[in-house]
Write a protein that binds this DNA or RNA. Structure first.
Length: 1015
RNA sequence: GGGCGGUUAGCUCAGCUGGUAGAGCGUCUCGUUUACACCGAGAAGGUCGGCGGUUCGAGCCCGUCACCGCCCACCA
């Protein structure tokens, strides 16, 4: 026996355990050998991560797809794993060292530090995996991978070496975005532009050729002026063009720099002349390149800042003015890269500026210029300043050697693949974003000055020559061959060297590691076993669908396309489903600092994983962000409870599906109808999922369960479940159970836990079906969708709806039984009516009168309200009003309704009498409109008749509405004026007093009648 | 500057190929020996952002304007 309410926390862990024990999520389960493969690779969460709402959404959608396809009989592989997340993980472990007051990273040394990270990973790295299980994720956990595990590392090295040999990976000295806090290069994508208030300084540079005159340059970064190599002005326009070819003297240092012509200088902006600082600005670097062989021949970019060692106790910014050796304030700390500023550059920097933090230096240099009268003016501006997305500090363009991927070349095939439809984005408009980015892609900087990650397989020889090989041994071998063949070393000398300890340092491995996204880019094939030709690789690549957020289309999706096309010669996935962001209920991004984060785990604890999953799925309409509130989840927990209770009802009435039950042969109209509706819902849901319309799919099963099954079907079925007619009772019991089972299956991808639990507890009576719902077959019910709707139970439902509506609209109390009489029914409907009389009467609290007895109603002369029964031509429902309704109110109501119908009829008339409409519209639309017109006219006639008879009706008491304050109105006011909702107890009291009031009114009515008679 | 998306009931949002504007929540009224009060019934509530166009017919297609959001680029 099921408990009265569903408590998710009681069952979820147990159910997940059962799935795992049964190996339900394992790929290639027995009996699936002939099955079509279906594969999703999980977007690997950071190993440091814990489940946030974005993960919850992302993985819910993947799980819905996987469970759906698994039930459809496909051989499903949901490939799980985590990402080593270079910077994030390194930061976490460094923080931990600090908290435990252990030696910092540099003190520990690289090897020991990495050992610590691995320890951390073993201890804490499983968090996200456990949390995904709590969400219900049906991954094949046996196959879990990690971007730093041996296999994936091997794939990374192999890819790097191969691309290097093809010239698609190379080392280059150029400007990169340098993160001064993390002390590493980062890629363009890791830079966030932040709007910042700043100033624009107008600096006066003296002209060499015209003493006493100046050229004015505008800059937001005056401190970089020490690195200026030129001043650029527009070649044709502006106030400075006459100075082209002349020279300026760089203030403070007295260096002579040329004034050059370049279109980059916009005469409209700033002063019209721009300082060129190729060592510290991407645009200036481009200008330098353009003039490298002309006016700037022999001039090199100057880097005037040095990254310095990250100091634990540092109170100043980590990026400072050029200096060497030691920091004056920290004489004991040796700089990591003391040679990054060359001797000459060092000499270029005035002594008082050396060693200053860059922002302190800015102030200082402005003061120095100001004191010399070289600042013309200062303008406040707002400009966007690049920040490191991880560190949050202002990044610095920095000229240094890094490794790059030739992304431009690699982008070509991915572009073609999507243009040719081999990979499709859903929704499609993201393709445009993808195209734009790939078409304008720049070299991808892949080296990072970190320790945690895949160390670059490049070794430097004694003369700086680079050997990129898969292993140290191979690098040494390559070096041996190279140096011997070039005569750098003789064979004998090499053999000697080999025996010496110095040999270990003969080649030096590159210290840097690869961008985390480099290994993620291989994910769709590396996790399947590449570079080995595994059966899984053959079977599941290309994968079916990738489910991810739009924020990583560039970071991840595009790069997987590049690597996939290059190494597998095929797209990594057929579909890319891009889902939205989960925001808070006000639409703000969830963030810890804002404190508006909804933690999926606490939601799961309180309301259940199913409720959360269903909420996310039903809200996942394409192209819109999800605004999530706890209230919404609450609503879908109620849905789980509703389902629970429906199954309980089936249990109470001993419903089960006997072996011989065949839904096609069901005879009763009520039962036939719910079977057809279930079948239609199944098709609709299936189609929606095939098209990634998760919200439509979820909505469909919600409607079927709650509206059709619970609110209508089960309510009608109750009468039959206790019927003394054995045949009808058994058929209904079977149908109740059969539909229940279809619902459990259809809902299972969305709400796996509660449906599994219900399946288990009700499956004792089921035959030839899977023990576990998760392994059951997806319903395929096309043949049960049925033919016409005309003779279904729907009209019986309509009778109930109309009667209920009339009851409330005419102000009758719910507990007063009224008399209704459906008339002019076709034979089929008459039968259905007869078969469902009990249910109709119970649900509308009415008594159905038919045939002879109807005429006796006429004899009473009571007011009879007539309405058409929608869907059954000509049929109408007479509702005999009791003596307890308010006629004045109802006359008003009827007149209002007639007015509405009048305008509707007018509109339809216009339409139908318009020859253009008749000519152009499809005939079925014309017919439809005509039918509607007719229907509306009939309705109006009935209402008019009702109005007329209302005036004559003997059960009308005119004085009543005067006696009684207009029902409800006064109370409405009182209620809405309250600050808060009355408590349940108060509401009960109020209901009781309302009943009393009604009692009093009835008395009043009787009294008034007597009075009238007297008159 | 380039691109994408949004504007529909009090709130949050659906609305597929143009053909009677929907849901959930909230509000109001009524109803509990009933599978479920995490419930049931009914009701109120909308010039579908503005203007123009195409069409027999526009929430949907086209143009335009306004406001909101996001992405990319740039900003001396």
């Amino acid at each position: 026996m099921l408990e009265k309410t569903y408590q998710p926390s009681k069952i979820e862990d147990r159910i997940y355990g059962e799935w795992e024990r049964a190996g339900a999520f394992e790929v290639g389960r027995s009996g699936r050998n002939g099955a079509e493969p279906y594969c999703i690779v999980i977007p690997p969460p950071n190993v440091t991560g814990s489940l946030h709402m974005g993960h919850a959404l992302n993985n819910t959608l993947q799980d819905v797809l996987c469970r759906f396809e698994r039930m459809r009989g496909k051989d499903v592989l949901w490939q799980p794993g985590t990402d080593h997340a270079g910077i994030a993980t390194q930061m976490v472990v460094e923080r931990q060292l600090m908290e435990r007051q252990e030696p910092d990273r540099r003190t520990l040394g690289r090897e020991e530090f990495i050992r610590r990270v691995w320890t951390w990973k073993e201890e804490s790295g499983g968090t996200i995996t456990r949390q995904l299980k709590r969400l219900g994720a049906s991954c094949d956990w046996r196959r879990e991978r990690f971007t730093m595990d041996d296999g994936l590392s091997r794939a990374v090295i192999k890819v790097f070496v191969a691309l290097h040999k093809e010239g698609l990976i190379y080392r280059d000295k150029r400007l990169v975005n340098w993160d001064p806090k993390l002390l590493t290069a980062i890629s363009d994508l890791e830079v966030q532009q932040v709007e910042t208030k700043g100033s624009l300084w107008y600096l006066k540079y003296p002209l060499e050729e015209v003493p006493g005159e100046f050229i004015v340059v505008a800059t937001a970064r005056p401190e970089t002026m020490l690195g200026d190599v030129a001043v650029a002005v527009h070649p044709k326009n502006g106030r400075w063009k006459h100075l082209i070819g002349k020279h300026a003297i760089l203030p403070l240092v007295g260096r002579r720099i040329p004034i050059i012509a370049d279109e980059y200088a916009d005469p409209e902006k700033g002063s019209g002349a721009v300082k060129i600082t190729p060592g510290h600005d991407f645009n200036d670097y481009e200008v330098w390149l353009r003039h490298e062989d002309a006016e700037l021949k022999g001039v090199q970019p100057i880097s005037i800042f040095t990254p310095e060692a990250k100091l634990k106790s540092s109170t100043f910014d980590d990026y400072a003015w050029g200096h060497r050796g030691t920091d004056p304030r920290h004489p004991d700390v040796t700089m990591a890269d003391e040679d990054l500023v060359g001797e000459e550059t060092f000499e270029l920097i005035p002594e008082e500026l050396r060693g200053l933090d860059r922002f302190v230096g800015r102030k200082k240099i402005v003061e120095m210029l100001e004191s010399k009268g070289l600042i013309e003016k200062l303008e406040p501006t707002v400009h966007t300043v690049p920040h490191g997305d991880r560190s949050g500090v202002v990044v610095e363009p920095y000229l240094t050697d890094q490794w790059y991927v030739d992304a431009k070349t690699m982008a070509q095939k991915p572009l073609k693949a999507v243009r040719g439809g081999r990979t499709k984005f859903v929704p499609k408009n993201w393709e445009k974003t993808y195209f734009e980015w790939l078409e304008n892609i720049k070299p991808w900087c892949i080296s990072r000055q970190l320790w945690w990650g895949h160390q670059i397989p490049a070794w430097y020889g004694p003369d700086g020559k680079i050997f990129v090989e898969q292993s140290e041994a191979e690098a040494y071998e390559a070096a041996r061959r190279h140096y011997i063949s070039t005569g750098f070393i003789s064979e004998n000398d090499y053999e000697d060297l080999k025996r010496q300890p110095a040999f270990a340092d003969w080649l030096k491995r590159d210290e840097d590691v690869l961008d985390t996204w480099f290994s993620s880019a291989l994910w769709p094939f590396s996790t399947l076993g590449w570079p080995d030709a595994t059966p899984e690789l053959k079977r599941f690549y290309p994968t079916s669908t990738l489910v991810t957020g739009f924020d990583i289309i560039f970071f991840w999706v595009a790069r997987m396309m590049m690597m996939g096309m290059h190494f597998m010669k095929e797209v990594p996935f057929r579909n890319v489903y891009i889902h939205a962001l989960v925001r808070d209920e006000k639409g703000a991004k969830m963030s810890k600092s804002k404190g508006n984060v909804i933690d999926p785990l606490s939601i799961i604890d309180d309301l259940g994983a199913d409720a959360l999953r269903f909420t996310l799925a039903v809200m996942a309409a394409q192209g819109r962000d999800i605004k999530l509130s706890e209230r919404a989840v609450l609503g879908y927990r109620a849905f789980a409870t509703k389902l629970w209770n429906a199954v309980r009802l089936a249990e109470i009435y001993q419903c089960n599906v006997p072996e011989e039950f065949e839904p096609r042969h069901v005879g009763d109209a009520l039962n036939r109808s719910i079977i057809a509706k279930t079948a239609k819902a199944a098709s609709k849901l299936t189609k929606a999922l095939e098209e990634f319309r998760f919200n439509d799919a979820a909505d469909t099963i919600y409607r079927l369960t709650w509206d059709e099954y619970c609110d209508w079907y089960l309510e009608f079925a109750k009468a039959k479940l206790t019927s003394s007619n054995n045949q009808i009772r058994r058929e209904t019991q079977s149908t109740v159970a059969w539909v229940r089972d279809q619902i459990l299956k259809l809902l299972h991808p969305f709400m796996p836990f509660v449906t599994e639990e219900l399946w288990r507890t009700t499956s004792k009576t089921r035959i030839a079906e899977a023990e576990l719902l998760t392994l059951a077959k997806w319903p395929s019910l096309r043949h049960l969708e049925g033919r016409s709707e005309k003779q279904t139970i729907e009209f019986a439902y309509q009778i109930v709806r109309e009667t209920r509506s009339v009851r409330v609209n005419f102000g009758m109390p719910a507990n007063e039984r009224i008399v209704i009489a459906p008339t002019k029914l076709p034979m089929a409907n008459t039968k259905i009516l007869a078969a469902n009389t009990e249910a109709i009467e119970r649900l509308s609290n009415s008594q159905i009168e038919r045939g002879r007895r109807q005429r006796s109603n006429k004899a009473t002369g009571l007011f009879v309200y007539r309405v058409s029964i929608p869907g059954v031509a000509g049929a109408e429902l007479k509702i005999v009003m009791p003596r307890s309704f308010d006629p004045v109110e109802q006359q008003r109501r009827l007149r209002d309704e007639i007015k509405k119908i009048d305008s509707e009829i007018f509109r339809l008339n216009e339409k139908v009498s318009n020859p253009d409409f008749i000519r152009n519209a499809p005939s079925e639309v014309v017919e439809e409109q005509r039918a509607r017109l007719k229907e509306e006219k009939t309705r109006r006639a009935k209402l008019r008749a009702a109005l007329a008879s209302l005036r004559r009706a003997p059960n009308v008491v005119r004085s009543r509405s005067k006696l009684r304050p207009r029902k409800g109105r006064g109370k409405v006011k009182a209620r809405t004026s309250r600050r808060h909702k009355p408590t349940r107890r108060k509401r009960k009291l109020r209901a009781a007093s309302n009943r009393k009031l009604r009692g009093a009114l009835r008395l009043g009515r009787a009294a008034s009648k007597i009075r009238r008679r007297k008159i």
